[in-house]
Design a protein around this nucleic acid. Structure first.
Lengths: 188, 188
DNA sequence: AAGGGCATGTAAATAGTTACATGATTGA
DNA sequence: TCAATCATGTAACTATTTACATGCCCTT
């Protein structure tokens, strides 16, 4: 049950609307937790009922009104409690890996296409992360920022996401090469 | 809806019981899909009703009887169709990353403990993967096996899992260092 | 005039986790 | 004798995804 904690963590940066959270859970946060808008609106409502976040209505003219949420004292305490809890082992849950696991019985040409698509997507995400990291760092270099900067939590998780995507890209390229090479050998 | 496909892929190696699958989904397969025994028994029953796998009863003396499942023609076709489908982007879903995202508001000592625990677990899993890979390879070296061996699907996914755990271990160590360093700076 | 962004949800279906249930055999 | 391994499930609950719904403003 960690979506609630992911929402609380995302709210530490400052107050956010459900809509803003939905975007955060589609880029930065999405490295380690993904959620659709519906789920976030539902979770915010539940957290508010339980007193872990507090919402305030902001009336707007040119746009629909919105509600901005902040973590309460009780919310901070809950995060603290959660951080002291042992973590379950993590795992990748990936369609593409399921397909590669079936490599011996499935059309290699299709598999290679999927791998190329994913490599491309990973490259794009890498660029996105590099941009996010540079923004968070400001004018400090990385060591300086990590030693004395503020808001290192999101920076550290983004670093994990960056490496993950970089390994994704490399593995896809290497795996596609292996499959292409086997296809070549078979046709000789 | 990829558990069904993960089960089909796991069954390509040869016939397996629900119990054997449960073990596979706790080690090898677990790099990219995790499932509890209950889920597997339920999924096997559903796949059998749909004709994608076929089960046969094996009567045993010293142990309870079991049912061994094989992929049918229809099952192979379904896997083939699935492999041709575009893959959703993958992501890590990790409690520990949620905790680190909250690093700025949470007790660093607790975080460091969680990171050390995870680094240790990753080291153990790395050893496990190295063993699995060596077994799959047999006496061939890696390049030879990847070029001409049989059953490379599971090998390739295991390679992905190996790198993932290795990056997990490194990131945990580096992140714990960053947190320890900041604690030291603050206390000076 | 069409498409995208802002902003919030409800309802239904599928997937995954937790708790419970049973019972024999084998090795420490 | 205690714990682990083999072997299979049911029931209840929680989490996630998919489909649907609304409506205004701004830019192209």
């Amino acid at each position: 049950m960690a979506l609630r904690h992911a929402v609380l963590a995302a709210l530490l940066d400052g107050e956010r609307s459900g809509y803003q959270l939905a975007k955060a859970f589609d880029v930065g946060m999405a490295n380690f937790w993904h959620a659709l808008p519906q789920q976030l609106y539902a979770e915010l409502a539940k957290l508010e009922r339980e007193g872990l976040v507090a919402g305030r209505e902001v009336v707007q003219e040119a746009r629909p009104n919105k509600r901005l949420f902040t973590v309460t004292e009780a919310g901070s305490a809950e995060l603290e409690r959660f951080a002291a809890t042992p973590s379950k082992p993590s795992f990748i849950r990936d369609d593409l890996l399921v397909k590669v696991a079936a490599a011996d019985s499935v059309d290699p040409a299709e598999l290679i296409s999927r791998l190329d698509e994913r490599a491309e997507a990973s490259r794009a995400k890498l660029d996105l992360f590099d941009g996010l990291l540079a923004t968070m760092r400001g004018d400090l270099d990385e060591d300086e920022f990590l030693a004395r900067g503020t808001g290192i939590g999101p920076y550290l998780t983004c670093l994990r996401g960056r490496v993950f995507e970089s390994e994704n890209r490399d593995w896809c390229a290497r795996t596609a090469d292996v499959l292409r090479n086997r296809a070549r050998l078979r046709s000789e």
